[in-house]
Nucleic acid binder design. Structure first.
Length: 806
DNA sequence: TGGCAACGGCAT
DNA sequence: TGCCGTTGCCAG
């Protein structure tokens, strides 16, 4: 038999299946979807088997070395999804396969050195011989990294055949193993043994006594660790196992990151609106018909309960469900709602888990141990066999789009998979993306609307404060007088406040007041942000940091001033203005550590703080009964970015943040601070008027030729020499113009707002199109022609339906 | 991707 | 002439 294998090299010339002979001992074992190690050129590489066949057009086939998996890691369906994904996003097929698997399954390649002729080596290079004394294989990188001088000598020995190279393909995925202990003989026998043991074997007797009477209970299999923790002796246990009285078994164990909290919940009664929304979803599941629903429900309208009851039905049908949530809202709050309803039938996948934990959750899905997968973007690839429902909560969230290859949108993958499985997709949001809402309007999706909050709670009242006026009247503080007053009021009433600011760090840029110099990143075309904790300037693009200068690097003046406001500065301001207020700050800088995110939220939930101050990450999913005030400090911070979605993002953000207030008994209030209070994105959000915003924004998109009226393809070029990137961009634009239809528009080349990132200069071209069958083939050709390999080379990246244009 | 042959420059 | 770094090609 012959296997078709995709090699683990994401480069154009090898982006196709290679034929390999299956050795006899692997005949009948190898199946499509398994990973194998194969000889490739002069090395060994990991590969994915995508098909089996009898014949090959190639005469000289090499044989598969070994298998990496005992069962396929990709189902036939996922293999097909991978091929589709590679074409749809213009990436190498292996890259698509890798994206569907947990990171722990990425192969690691190691070059090993071994002695072939030890006597001769000793004669030629005694020092080297000493290193290889044990005769064992040693890692090439480990030997050479501390001692680069050895490289030449090793090469010399290799040429003479005294040393040899062995390529090793390592699978990093290893299940956590635990040892369980059980009785190997009857309780009767154990009693006998106890009496026969000498008095000195006190510890062994202790162990045996524990197992007496439990021999017959097959489920009694405590782990070695548990026994040792309870004061029994590991030595004694192994001794008894040696005597065949106890049995030790190694079993694979699943790490369970949520083992500690599971609190069972029951389905809630649905409101009329919720019933009406759920019914068509149920119907679609019952008839096994693929449909896409857009559930547009105001914040607090109980979308999650609809999801939960729909999933309930999926389980009754003995199928599986995938629930996607934005990375940021994967707080225990959200996860617990699913865990609480479905308990250990749920696997959770998100970036807060360790590599091993993610791998375990993934295995639970593959092995059919769970029926529900809750996770961020990549959970859309959950290896379920019979998907009954896919839910995408907060469907407008930009984190559903992967920003590096493969540049896929989870929404597209979900719909693609749902078609294959004949099941519905439910997109949920209080602020749907214009694309989705437009599709619902055109009846491509089915619109489900929830206008009211559950329990009839009113939406919070929203007040917009004009910051220009505050300025005019001499208030230069971050807080308007209204917001400050309300903050004080809540402090007094012992109610809580959420403050939102979309910018971390202390200030946005540092400028010299004497000569106007703004301190920029030496590697990127962007100003550095001041972080007060360590008195540092940081680049938020490449991570570069330097000490904050006391004097201007250009003119030497000491008039360095900090402009713009970040969360750190607001925190300092709060401490100054309201010294009695307890503040929790949440941003990338305070949540970097594992578990800190949850910890901070728990503190706030336990009312250990009065004010929660944070960036994006606090905008959604939070639900605290005591929060009665929400402040948006700078509503227009996103509005003036060079991005056609700036208004949409602003509207969504304000709406989402406002939704954090007054979700329970206490009514909520929202204060929005803005320099452009009349902008429709701000004023419509304040009025909770999605429809109004939608109309106005669609008008502008229509005029500008932007989605949802046109599709976009963004081609980005980077090179360390600006001229090289510019030249390629010119040529690409002319190729596109020549090959695409008249109706498609080709723009560029342009220099993006950030012209340099990590010492590479950037150019962009863009295509706007409605229907363009020639596009994918042309872009594939462009990739093949222009993409160079090597370190200092031209990099081409193509993003179809980009979410961020920068 | 990475290994290697082929190539050319350069010190000897 | 041998050694080294660079370049381009190729893999089933």
């Amino acid at each position: 038999m012959i296997a078709e294998v995709y090699i683990d090299i994401p480069a154009n010339p090898v982006n196709k299946p290679f034929d390999y002979r299956i050795p006899d001992y692997l005949d009948e074992v190898i199946q499509p979807g398994m990973r194998v190690t194969v000889p490739f050129g002069r090395t060994r590489r990991l590969g994915f088997v995508t098909g089996l066949k009898e014949q090959s057009e190639f005469k000289q086939l090499r044989a598969i070395d070994s298998i990496e998996d005992h069962a396929p890691v990709l189902t036939q369906e996922l293999l097909d999804v991978g091929l589709w994904l590679a074409e749809a996003t213009l990436c190498a097929t292996v890259t698509a396969f890798q994206a569907m698997l947990p990171a722990a399954m990425k192969a690691e390649y190691k070059k090993m050195l071994q002695v072939e002729e030890s006597e001769q080596l000793k004669a030629e290079d005694p020092e080297l011989a000493k290193i290889f004394e044990t005769g064992r294989q040693l890692s090439w990188t480990e030997i050479t990294k501390n001692n680069p001088e050895l490289l030449k000598r090793i090469n010399r020995m290799l040429k003479k055949g005294l040393l040899s190279i062995h390529q090793l393909v390592q699978n990093q995925a290893n299940a956590k193993k635990v040892i369980t202990v059980s009785a190997a003989v009857s309780s009767e026998r154990l009693k006998e043994e106890v009496s026969q043991l000498s008095d000195r074997a006190k510890r062994q007797k202790e162990v045996l006594n524990l197992f007496i009477g439990k021999s017959e209970d097959a489920s009694y299999k405590p782990t070695m660790n548990a026994l040792v923790q309870n004061g029994l002796s590991r030595e004694a246990i192994t001794r008894l196992a040696d005597k065949s009285l106890l049995r030790l078994e190694q079993i694979e164990q699943f790490r369970d990151p949520y083992a500690n909290y599971v609190q069972q919940t029951q389905p809630l009664d649905l409101t009329d609106e919720q019933h009406k929304a759920l019914a068509p979803i149920m119907q679609s599941m019952n008839t096994g018909e693929h449909r896409v629903f857009l559930c547009h429900g105001v914040t607090g309208s109980g979308k999650t309960e609809i999801y939960l009851q729909a999933i309930q039905r999926v389980l009754e049908l003995e199928k599986q469900a995938i629930v996607l949530v934005p990375e940021i809202s994967l707080t225990p709050q959200m996860v617990l709602r699913f865990k609480g309803r479905f308990g250990d039938r749920v696997a959770v996948m998100h970036s807060g888990l360790s590599r091993g934990e993610k791998y375990d959750e993934w295995r639970k899905i593959r092995e059919g141990k769970v029926q529900v997968a809750v996770g961020a973007r990549s959970a859309v690839f959950a290896p379920f066999k019979k998907i009954g429902l896919i839910i995408i909560d907060e469907e407008h969230e930009s984190s559903y789009k992967q920003e590096d290859t493969p540049r896929y949108h989870a929404r597209d993958v979900a719909i693609h998979r749902a078609k294959i499985h004949h099941c519905p997709v439910v997109l949920g949001s209080a602020t749907p993306s214009l694309e989705s809402f437009a599709r619902a309007r055109k009846k491509v999706y089915t619109l489900l609307t929830l206008k009211e909050r559950v329990n009839r709670r009113p939406l919070p009242s929203v007040q917009v404060v004009d910051l220009r006026e505050e300025m005019r009247e001499g208030n230069h503080s971050v807080f308007s007088r209204l917001l400050l007053e309300k903050l004080k009021d809540r402090l007094q009433k012992k109610e809580q406040t959420v403050l939102f600011l979309n910018r971390r760090g202390y200030s946005t840029f540092v400028m010299c007041r004497s000569c106007g110099t703004v301190v920029k990143c030496p590697h990127c075309d962007i100003s550095l942000t001041y972080h007060r904790a360590h008195h540092l300037l940081k680049c938020h693009y490449c991570g570069y940091e330097q000490k904050a200068p006391d004097t201007c690097p250009t003119c030497g003046s000491d008039a360095m001033r900090f402009f713009g406001t970040g969360t750190q500065k607001v925190e300092a301001e709060l401490n100054r203005l309201l010294p009695e207020a307890r503040v929790i700050r949440m941003d990338v800088d305070t949540t970097r550590q594992k578990g800190s995110h949850e910890k901070l939220l728990r503190q706030f939930g336990d009312e250990k703080a009065d004010i929660l101050l944070g960036t994006q990450m606090i905008a959604k999913g939070l639900d605290f009964p005591k929060v009665t005030l929400v402040g948006v400090l700078a509503a227009d911070s996103l509005l003036h970015l060079p991005d056609f979605r700036a208004s949409e993002k602003t509207f969504q953000l304000i709406t989402q943040v406002s939704g954090r207030a007054g979700r329970h008994r206490l009514p909520g209030e929202v204060v929005i601070q803005s320099y452009t209070p009349d902008h429709y994105a701000v004023s419509d959000a304040a009025r909770h008027d999605y429809e109004g915003f939608y109309q106005q924004e669609m008008e502008l998109r229509h005029r500008g030729g932007y989605p949802p009226f046109f599709y976009l393809a963004l081609i980005s070029l980077t090179h360390s020499e600006p001229a090289k990137a510019a030249d390629a961009a010119e040529r690409i634009v002319s190729i596109l113009k020549k090959n695409l239809s008249e109706a498609s528009l080709v723009y560029g080349p342009v220099v993006p707002a950030i012209s340099k990132i990590k010492d590479r200069y950037r150019y962009q071209c863009m295509v706007k199109y409605k229907r363009e069958p020639a596009l994918i083939p042309v872009l594939q050709k462009i990739m093949q022609h222009f993409q160079e390999s090597g370190k200092d080379s031209l990099q081409v990246s193509i993003d179809l339906n980009p979410v961020v244009l920068m």
